[in-house]
């Protein structure tokens, strides 16, 4: 029971960590919470599902979903957020919520509201560890998450583009003055964050099914994880995501499953009260 919950928690946590990356990256460059990020997660899963229905090979279908997610994020930024650069943050927030309503209902219009299961090459197989069986798909999720995190770390720290993203996170105006195309950097940030978010949705598809509102709570929790890790802190978001998944899994298993979604929200409130800079964040003085 204990080990089961722990593994479930780590799997859930991987998903939250992947989601948190999208929130954190966008926060870094634009200082705004992209409330439509949960819909990228849903969109990626649906596109994979659709490609599988067309008899696409499974890896291609997964890849197609990730690309669709990246495209969705890119389009959001180009069509809406970019045109609102000078608007107050509150307007951006409402626009993001509007986009999320549109995407949810678009998915429902195209694909219907019945939950469907994505196929996975591993779901039917188990691995025996000692005297217990672990689903191979769970292992797949964990390994892929770790891989994505390593690639992302390398991208951010080792490539020129990654350094430009870092620079944009620190001070977007100065970045522009240095001759970096800030709009391009922001678009790339959206595309990468959304691709990772879509991947999370695709990975969850075989376990928790795919339906138009699947992104709502996944989004809220990914977002909670990004706050826990310290808004804008990518490694922090990853660790916090795992932590949140494990806590939630234990709370749901041992306390009450009806309130499992409330656990994340209580943690969010608690973190905001006690350590608004996040577990791993530094205190930033409010600029006057």
């Amino acid at each position: 029971m204990f080990i089961d919950q722990l593994i479930n928690g780590i799997v859930l946590g991987s998903i939250y960590a992947l989601m948190a990356i999208g929130y954190t990256m966008v926060w870094n460059v634009l200082r705004f919470i992209n409330f439509a990020h949960g819909e990228v997660y849903m969109g990626g899963a649906f596109v994979s599902l659709y490609l599988l229905l067309l008899d696409t090979p499974i890896w291609l279908a997964y890849l197609g979903g990730v690309c669709a997610g990246a495209l969705l994020g890119y389009l959001m930024e180009k069509m809406v957020y970019m045109r609102m650069r000078n608007a107050p943050k509150l307007n951006l927030l409402i626009a993001a919520i509007g986009i999320s309503i549109v995407l949810q209902n678009l998915a429902q219009y195209i694909w219907g509201a019945t939950p469907e299961r994505l196929t996975s090459p591993f779901l039917s197989k188990n691995i025996a560890v000692g005297d217990m069986l672990i689903n191979q798909h769970y292992i797949f999720i964990i390994i892929l998450t770790i891989l994505v995190m390593i690639v992302l770390e390398l991208f951010i720290n080792r490539t020129l583009m990654g350094k430009a993203v870092q620079a944009a996170s620190q001070n977007i105006k100065a970045t522009q003055l240095m001759g970096i195309n800030a709009n391009k950097i922001i678009s790339i940030t959206f595309a990468i964050g959304s691709a990772v978010g879509a991947l999370a949705g695709i990975l969850v598809g075989p376990v928790f099914l795919v339906y138009p509102t699947m992104g709502v709570f996944a989004g809220l929790k990914g977002f909670t994880a990004s706050v826990m890790g310290g808004m804008g802190n990518i490694p922090g978001a990853m660790i916090a995501g795992l932590l949140l998944g494990v806590i939630e899994s234990f709370a749901a298993g041992f306390i009450s499953s009806g309130y499992r979604d409330a656990v994340a929200m209580v943690i969010l409130l608690f973190i905001l009260l006690v350590r608004p800079q996040g577990i791993f964040g530094k205190i930033v003085q409010q600029k006057v």
Partner: peptide, 27 residues
């Protein structure tokens, strides 16, 4: 509780509060 926080964090706190209350209604 919430108004000690700066703008964006207040949004998050009220969001968390709203969701908790909704889950209480539901459960």
């Amino acid at each position: 509780i919430g108004l000690k926080l700066i703008e964006e964090y207040l949004v998050m706190a009220t969001l968390a509060f709203g969701t908790i209350i909704w889950l209480v209604f539901l459960n």
